[in-house]
């Protein structure tokens, strides 16, 4: 698996796929947020990711860290609400963890996701089980570290992270929110899937989808 790495161009493609996935799911995320929040998560994330795409126009991904930091800074200045600082911090910390790298081995990716998660926790002060994006990101980061330690293939590791994020997202449904606007609802927040956990699951899922063929020999890969 040593030759299966994520290139800077792969990272650019992941961001583009995430942006289009957010656009497709804008109304769904907003609908989830209307049930327990203030109904703007899809709109805000879509505004932010559209700005990111404009900003990345022509980016080559030679410096993965710099690229991810730009994504983070753009989200902080365009999203607002709670999503801006949280997703902005996630990408900025992932960028800090990958500074100067032109491609990422699986261990680098696992460390980047973990650094992003720690940044989100420090900014939002949420714990697992509070019904937030942490509930999707924590199991994903754990699955990646475990896969890295077991020397699993890159595509298997990404798939297991996406699956763990999905399970974490679904597990938010019965939870009572203890952070953010949903916490004002108390017990009434139970029975609804958390919109932040949902957009975080989509982040891990698009990574698995986009980087999947990064695991195959370079000669067989498309789009290069």
């Amino acid at each position: 698996m040593s030759d299966s790495t994520i290139s800077g161009a792969d990272v650019v493609r992941w961001i583009q796929v995430y942006a289009s996935t957010i656009a497709e799911n804008r109304d769904y995320l907003t609908q989830l947020d209307s049930a327990i929040g203030d109904g703007d998560h899809g709109t805000n994330m879509n505004r932010g990711m559209s700005a990111v795409i404009e900003k990345l126009d022509g980016a080559t991904g030679d410096d993965v860290g710099g690229l991810l930091k730009t994504v983070g800074m753009t989200l902080v200045s365009k999203v607002g609400g709670a999503g801006g600082p949280l997703y902005g911090t996630l990408f900025m910390q992932m960028g800090a963890a990958t500074t100067g790298k032109s491609d990422l081995a699986m261990g680098d990716w696992a460390k980047a996701v973990d650094a992003g998660l720690k940044g989100v926790q420090a900014r939002g002060k949420a714990e697992p089980g509070d019904k937030t994006m942490i509930d999707a990101l924590t199991p994903a980061a754990e699955a990646l570290s475990k896969a890295a330690a077991a020397a699993a293939s890159l595509s298997d590791a990404l798939r297991s992270a996406a699956q763990a994020a999905e399970e974490g997202m679904k597990a938010t449904i019965p939870l009572v929110a203890r952070k953010g606007r949903a916490s004002y609802l108390g017990e009434r927040s139970a029975g609804h899937q958390d919109p932040g956990a949902t957009s975080s699951f989509l982040l891990m899922k698009t990574a698995a989808d986009t980087f999947a063929d990064a695991g195959r020999p370079r000669a067989d890969r498309k789009n290069e």
Partner: peptide, 11 residues
Amino acid sequence: PGEVFTSPTPD
């Protein structure tokens, strides 16, 4: 001023 009912941003 942020967007309607959305916090403004740090910049």
